[in-house]
């Protein structure tokens, strides 16, 4: 189910003194099974763009095509489309609106009027996909969940609608390191085992770099880079210029590179960096 965006523009508060041109001519193609990161500083338009993917915003100028269906077209079934393109919001408190986990996860399937056995099966499957035990969590109160569990429950609620595309909007914000790792592991597994197209929106390069194969960099409503993760990180100076912070690993390796150590550009993975630095040091030793 490919996703295509053509000449998309969007402005907020049009016709008021607070008008803000959030998107200015976006063109984009995301293929089946890709893992794409969308990064950019705050107010760069990344969330606005992402909310066009599941027709929360309908384009006034330009087009969004999901599997060839124009979201603007009156004949497109938007409810069905929003089930196919799942969207997980930054703050799970808005997303979880039932009182127990089971009730919440079954919210989407119940809207589809599925038979009860099917609903139950989907809830079980989705909870297990995100690593929450069905028996233990089905009746659990939403308020009794930890931050990481809340986010996983929110993802399960979206998975229960059987999406082919999963949009994750800054879902690691506010999590502690353990919670963050937990959630990133769930997402990596979903993508590799279920081949769900995953679009990961974030302002943190650290999070995006771990998972994404391709990164789209946004700045002031435009796409300024769209390339493989490694290629993006080798353009360190440009990224810093628009106010993005590079992953700490990248910054460190860049500094060593400038000091004359033989290291490849665009390193962002800590294990790779460790190996590369060790190799550079080994070489130095051998030469002596």
């Amino acid at each position: 189910m490919p996703l295509e965006v053509i000449d998309l523009c969007h402005s907020y508060k049009e016709g008021t003194p607070f008008v803000h041109e959030a998107l200015q001519g976006i063109n984009l193609y995301i293929d089946d099974g890709e893992f794409v990161g969308i990064i950019g500083p705050t107010r760069s338009g990344k969330s606005t763009l992402a909310q066009h993917f599941n027709a929360l915003y309908i384009p006034r100028r330009g087009k969004v095509l999901i599997d060839g269906n124009d979201t603007k077209d009156k004949n497109t079934d938007l409810v069905r489309l929003r089930h196919r393109v799942g969207y997980v919001f930054q703050n799970p408190d808005y997303q979880l609106f039932a009182s127990t986990v089971g009730e919440d996860v079954s919210f989407g399937p119940r809207r589809q009027n599925l038979p009860p056995e099917e609903i139950k099966a989907r809830v079980r499957e989705s909870l297990e996909l995100v690593g929450l035990d069905y028996e233990a969590f089905f009746k659990r109160d939403i308020y009794a969940l930890s931050g990481g569990q809340k986010r996983r429950a929110a993802i399960a609620g979206v998975l229960a609608c059987k999406p082919r595309i999963l949009v994750l909007d800054d879902i690691t914000a506010g999590l502690d390191p353990a919670g963050r790792e937990e959630i990133l592991a769930v997402i990596a597994r979903l993508h590799s085992e279920n081949q769900i197209t995953t679009i990961f929106v974030s302002s943190s390069m650290d999070d995006v770099s771990v998972l994404a194969e391709r990164i789209i960099v946004m700045h002031e409503g435009r796409i300024i880079i769209d390339d493989t993760t490694r290629a993006v990180f080798s353009r360190a100076d440009e990224l810093e210029e628009i106010g993005l912070e590079l992953p700490e690993v990248t910054v460190l390796v860049e500094k060593l590179r400038k000091l004359g150590y033989k290291l490849p550009p665009g390193l962002f993975n800590i294990e790779e960096a460790q190996a590369a630095i060790a190799m550079a040091l080994d070489q130095g030793r051998a030469e002596q």
């Binding site: 690993v249 800590i270 460790q274």
Partner: peptide, 19 residues
């Protein structure tokens, strides 16, 4: 459930390789 600082992690990997 905490992280180690990035520099600490790299340093400890290098240390285990004899640096």
């Amino acid at each position: 459930g905490l992280d180690f600082p990035v520099a600490t992690r790299i340093a400890s990997a290098l240390r285990s390789r004899g640096y």
